[in-house]
Nucleic acid binder design. Structure first.
Lengths: 290, 290
DNA sequence: TATCGCGTGAAAAGATTTTTCCAAAATGGG
DNA sequence: CCCATTTTGGAAAAATCTTTTCACGCGATA
C-alpha cells in the first residue's frame, strides 16, 4: 500500500512539539505565508525567517525529508496540484466508443488543441484584429494555402454576408499580382498559413505589407515566417494523432472572429442578412427552415 | 503607472517568432504542461524537453530574464498568484479575456457543441462509414452546400492525398447531372447538408441512392431530409451565439473520419504521402518545414 | 561558580546548478 | 553542390546553494 502523502503543513503541525525555538520561528513564518515563504532557496528562506540556514536544514530533516531540496519539491507539488484543481481536464465527452478508438483519441487531442489555442489568444490583439476586419472603408482580401484554402473560402463566404468589399484571392498564385496592383493603404489581408509554409504566400504578404495593407495572420503554433510582417498574428494548435495537422482550432478562431466582427457592426450587418434572406426566399433555392 | 507584468506564457508567445527550433521544442513542452514543466532545475527541465541546458539558458535570456533563476522565480510567482487569487473558479480554458468577451462565450458554446456531437456519434456507424470511405474500388464523390462547400473542399483535399478516385463536385449544381451519369454501385457520396437544407442536394442524394451509391451524410442536429436516403448519417451540434451556425463540430467529425480512414488503409496511404512529399520537394513550393 | 547539555549560527566544505566557451552540426542562400 | 552563417550541445568554469563542522552562548543544576 502507498503511504498517504501528508502536506508540509500537516507535517509541521505533527512535529511542532518537538521543534526548537528557532525552528518554530521558521515554522510560523512559513505557515503565515504558505507556501510562498518556503519556495525560495534555503538561504533566502532562512534570511526571511531570521534564522540560520543550518536551522532550516536540520528542521526539514526532522520533518522527514532527506534534505532541503526534497522539502522544496514537496511544497511545489502541493502548489501545482492545487492549481490544476479537481481534474478539470479530460472532458467527460467520450462517446460510447471503446477506449483507444479513434473517436476518443481524437476528442482528447482536439480538446487539448482548443484549450492551448484559447489560452494563447491575446484578447487585445483579437479585438484589434476584429476592428480591422470590420473596416468597410478598405477592401478585405482573404487567402489561404494548399490546405487552408478551404478555410479562406469559409471565411470569404461569411464575411461576404457581413460586409461589402470582400475578395477571395484564389489559390492560384499566378493571379495574385493583379490583386496586389489594386491594394492600397487601409485594406486588410486575412491570411492563413500553416505548415508547410508556402513561399508564395510569404511574398504576397510582404508585398501587401509594403503597400500599407494590414495583414491579419492565422497560423499554427510554430508561427509562419509571415508573422514578421503581419499586424496581428494568431497561433492555433494543430497537432493530432495523424500524419497531417488539424484545422479545428484554426476554424474555431476564424469563427470567433467572424462572430465578433458581425457583433461589431451588427446594425449594418442585420440589414444585409435580412436582404440576403429575402433573396434566398425569392430564388427558392432552399427548403423552408423547419 | 506600473508596467503590467507579462506572464511567461505571453512572453513566449511574443517571442515565438524569434525562437529557434530547439528553443521552440522547450517552449512547446512548457506550454503543454504549464507551468509545471518549468519549475524544476534547468538541468531537469532541459532533459524533459530533450534539449541541452545552454539552449534553455539562452532562451530565457531572449525572453528578457537575466538568467534561469529569474525565469524560475517568475513562474513561481505566477503560480502563487493563481492560488491566492480571488475566486479561482473561471472556465477551464478561458483566456485572459474578460468574462463576457466573445472569446469566452464562444469557447463555451464550442465546448458544448463538441461534447454533444461526440456523445451522439455511434462508433459502429462511424467505423462502417470509414470502411465505406476507404473503399478504393469505387469512386468517392464529395459535395457540400452554400456554406459547407468549404468543408467539402477540405475533405476533398485530404481524401485526395489518402486515396485515388476522389471527385469534388463543385457547388454549381448545373454540372451535377454529368457526375450522376457516371455514378455506379459501389461508389460513395460524402455529403454535407446543414440548415438551411438545399433542395438541389436532396435531389442529388436521391438520384445517387437510386443508383446504389452509398451516401454518407454529415448534417446538423436537426437532420437534413437527406437522412432518409443516406446509408450513414451523422449529426453535429452547430449552435453558437450568432446569427449563423458553427461548423466546428462538423469539421471535427470530418477530420476524425479522415484520420480514421487514413489509419484504416495506412500501408497504401503511407506510400502516397511519401510520393506527395517528394513531389513537393522537387517543385519547391514550400519552405523546408522548421 | 563550574559544568553539562542543548541550541545556534559563522564559516568551510561539498554538492549542485547555472553560465560560458567552443567545436561540431545543421541550415539557408547562391 | 558548396560556402557562410546560424544553431546546437558537450564540457569546463563560475556561481550558487546545501550540508557539515565546530565553537560559542545560554540556562539549568549541583
Amino acid at each position: 500500500m502507498t503511504k498517504p502523502p501528508l502536506t508540509v503543513r500537516e507535517l509541521i503541525r505533527d512535529h511542532y512539539p518537538t521543534l526548537t525555538q528557532s525552528e518554530r520561528k521558521f515554522a510560523n513564518s512559513l505557515l503565515e505565508n504558505y507556501p510562498a515563504a518556503g519556495l525560495a532557496s534555503i538561504t533566502i528562506v532562512a534570511a526571511n525567517a531570521e534564522v540560520s540556514t543550518p536551522t532550516i536544514a536540520r528542521m526539514v530533516q526532522k520533518l522527514g525529508f532527506k534534505g532541503y531540496p526534497q522539502f522544496h519539491q514537496a511544497l511545489l507539488k502541493e502548489l501545482e496540484a492545487k492549481v490544476s484543481g479537481p481534474t478539470q481536464r479530460r472532458e467527460n465527452w467520450a462517446s460510447e466508443a471503446p477506449e483507444g478508438h479513434m473517436l476518443n483519441r481524437f476528442s482528447q487531442a482536439v480538446t487539448d488543441n482548443l484549450s492551448q489555442t484559447f489560452s494563447n489568444v491575446d484578447s487585445g490583439q483579437f479585438d484589434a484584429a476584429v476592428r480591422q476586419l470590420a473596416k468597410t472603408e478598405g477592401r478585405l482580401y482573404v487567402v489561404g494555402g494548399r490546405i487552408t484554402r478551404a478555410l479562406a473560402d469559409y471565411a470569404f463566404t461569411h464575411f461576404q454576408a457581413i460586409r461589402q468589399r470582400v475578395t477571395h484571392m484564389t489559390s492560384s498564385s499566378a493571379t495574385w499580382p493583379h490583386y496586389v496592383l489594386d491594394m492600397e493603404e487601409g485594406d486588410t489581408l486575412l491570411l492563413f498559413d500553416v505548415r508547410r509554409y508556402e513561399t508564395n504566400l510569404q511574398r504576397l504578404a510582404e508585398l501587401a505589407a509594403e503597400r500599407g495593407v494590414k495583414v491579419v495572420l492565422i497560423t499554427d503554433q510554430w508561427a509562419s515566417p509571415i508573422a514578421a510582417v503581419a499586424a496581428h498574428t494568431f497561433n492555433c494548435w494543430v497537432e493530432i494523432p495523424s500524419a497531417w495537422d488539424s484545422n479545428i482550432s484554426t476554424m474555431m478562431l476564424l469563427e470567433a472572429m467572424i462572430a465578433a466582427t458581425q457583433e461589431e457592426s451588427w446594425d449594418k450587418t442585420k440589414d444585409r442578412y435580412d436582404r440576403l434572406d429575402e433573396l434566398f426566399d425569392t430564388t427558392r433555392l432552399f427548403r423552408k427552415f423547419s
